[in-house]
């Protein structure tokens, strides 16, 4: 049995928790997020012939007063960096988080999720910005917690990258 710890990271309110709620196996209530600052869910995906169990540490969103607890990142085999496509500044926060994560746990596979893809009319991240991110080596995926678009694929893709 292959298990991997992955983290969900991002600014406060980008929809991390909503993103996983419909797709994962949960045991704990969301109250842990506000108390302990993390909530753990489970997601099983198949990579090739192998079943990979992803232990998903949904880490409380970062805001001005509470930075992410880096100790929760220890041992993560990959992470999902979530930003809100309708709020450009969340991408900056994601970028800041990414650099700190890299310093803390080194280079591990990660994907950048631009969430709320269903809200096209208020979308703030233009083609140039996307292009810039891809230039920097980031894999960017548009997701929507509401429609579910891209969510399953994100988990599978990250699992694939971590296993290979």
């Amino acid at each position: 049995m292959l298990q991997k710890k992955i983290c969900m990271l991002g600014a406060f309110g980008v929809g991390k928790t909503s993103l996983v709620r419909r797709y994962v196996q949960s045991l704990f209530s969301d109250a842990y997020l506000t108390t302990v600052g993390v909530k753990i869910d489970k997601k099983t995906v198949t990579v090739g012939n192998e079943t990979v169990t992803l232990l998903l540490w949904d880490i409380a969103g970062e805001d001005d007063v509470s930075p992410i607890r880096m100790s929760y990142l220890r041992g993560a085999a990959g992470y999902l960096l979530v930003a809100d496509g309708t709020r450009a500044e969340t991408l900056d926060i994601a970028s800041s988080i990414q650099s700190r994560v890299k310093a803390e746990i080194g280079t591990v596979p990660f994907l950048v999720l631009l969430n709320k893809a269903d809200l096209q009319e208020s979308w703030e991240i233009g083609r140039d910005a996307m292009h810039g991110l891809e230039q920097a080596g980031w894999s960017v995926v548009r997701t929507s917690a509401r429609t579910g678009a891209g969510v399953e694929e994100v988990f599978e893709e990250l699992a694939k990258r971590m296993v290979s």
Partner: peptide
């Protein structure tokens, strides 16, 4: 689910 429990315990 012991996997979730162990994760949360560690957290």
């Amino acid at each position: 689910d012991p996997q979730l429990v162990s994760g949360m315990l560690t957290a």
